[in-house]
Computed example of a mutant assay.
Amino acid sequence: MSRKSNRRKSSKLWLKIPLILIGVLILGVGAYAFTIYNNAAKTVNEKMHEPVESIDRETTKKKMKETEQLNILLLGIDSEQGTSGRSDAMMVLSLNPTDDSMKLISIPRDTRTTIAGKGIEDKINHAHAFGGTEMSIETIENFLDIELDYYVRMNMDGLSELVDELGTITVDNEIAWNDHTYDFNVGPVELDGDQTMAYVRMRKQDPNGDFGRTSRQRQVIEGIINKGASVGSVTKINSTIDVLGNNMATNLDFDDMKKLLSGYKNTRKNIESYQLQGDGTTIDGVYYLIVSGEEIEKVRGMIEGEV
């Protein structure tokens, strides 16, 4: 199936967390910490590594060797639906070592597009339910007219445990609210695992609704990337790797990760985040977000470094 020939409301809102661990695993902790633990290599290569046919291995290896820009698809899967569930979190993480920049682009789950391999118009997050990671990759590539180099898929059950392994993370909260368990004040807020889950669940108290929630998802990603980069003790690596091994799949192998650490680690110094914009509409009683061609072109330009 050609990668360019085909061109998408979970009730578990809190499961819509992106693949936060990407920063911890790939960009945050040092290369030395990985190499001194045999458990890391074994866990990555035997438990996490899942190649896909839709991404050419030789091409991505060459791009990484030459330290070219890489695009990584982040998928957050509803834990209770297993690996065949809907991808209720979808982001494209673009790493550009030329100017040491990272772009994090959110794709709203209700975005209407053509599902690759099925030829039907549907919500973009249904692609994973229909055809797993392969169909998600092809659908998103066709939708944005980009080429993806790697993917990271996470079962979100491990989020709270992952944050607790790091200790806490810090986010810059934009609105004051409480959920009758925790108070979230405006400004820097320190979160443990349970507080992180509450922080990303909230939608109804946010005047921006789902858009506000996805903004908090990106804040959490940045918080974990920054905390992962400053972890002082390598004794945390084994337990963190165990958490990831039980909740993550990727076509990155251990050698790929070491190369990312050496060639792309400075991209976290300049993080830019964005969410695709569109207009909501109802078709046959189902809500969709319609993204214009101009918006898609804008985002493609951001990912490719043209904007």
Rank of each mutant, 00 (worst) to 15 (best):
residue 29 V to I: 15
residue 141 E to A: 09
residue 151 Y to C: 08
residue 163 V to R: 08
residue 180 H to D: 15
residue 182 Y to I: 14
residue 121 E to R: 10
residue 63 K to H: 02
residue 306 E to Q: 11
residue 90 M to I: 15
residue 215 S to Q: 13
residue 193 G to P: 06
residue 157 D to R: 09
residue 256 D to M: 10
residue 218 R to P: 05
residue 117 G to S: 11
residue 183 D to Y: 14
residue 186 V to L: 12
residue 256 D to Y: 05
residue 231 V to T: 06
residue 71 N to G: 12
residue 132 G to P: 09
residue 270 N to H: 14
residue 286 V to S: 04
residue 197 M to A: 10
residue 108 P to H: 09
residue 92 V to S: 05
residue 262 S to D: 04
residue 226 N to G: 01
residue 259 K to W: 02
residue 253 D to E: 13
residue 15 L to I: 10
residue 161 E to F: 09
residue 189 V to S: 04
residue 168 T to S: 15
residue 219 Q to V: 10
residue 280 G to Q: 04
residue 149 D to K: 12
residue 51 P to W: 02
residue 3 R to W: 08
residue 177 W to H: 07
residue 156 M to F: 10
residue 68 E to W: 01
residue 84 S to D: 09
residue 223 G to N: 07
residue 237 I to L: 04
residue 107 I to M: 02
residue 249 A to D: 09
residue 185 N to F: 14
residue 188 P to G: 06
residue 35 T to V: 13
residue 1 M to W: 07
residue 286 V to M: 09
residue 41 A to D: 03
residue 179 D to Y: 09
residue 269 K to H: 02
residue 109 R to C: 11
residue 304 E to Y: 01
residue 176 A to T: 08
residue 95 L to I: 07
residue 230 S to H: 06
residue 276 L to H: 04
residue 79 S to V: 12
residue 111 T to F: 06
residue 235 T to C: 01
residue 138 E to F: 06
residue 113 T to E: 13
residue 19 L to G: 05
residue 70 L to H: 02
residue 55 I to Q: 00
residue 33 A to F: 03
residue 146 I to N: 06
residue 53 E to V: 04
residue 72 I to N: 05
residue 59 T to K: 10
residue 122 D to Y: 08
residue 289 L to E: 00
residue 243 V to T: 15
residue 268 R to W: 03
residue 243 V to P: 05
residue 138 E to H: 08
residue 29 V to R: 01
residue 134 E to A: 14
residue 221 I to M: 06
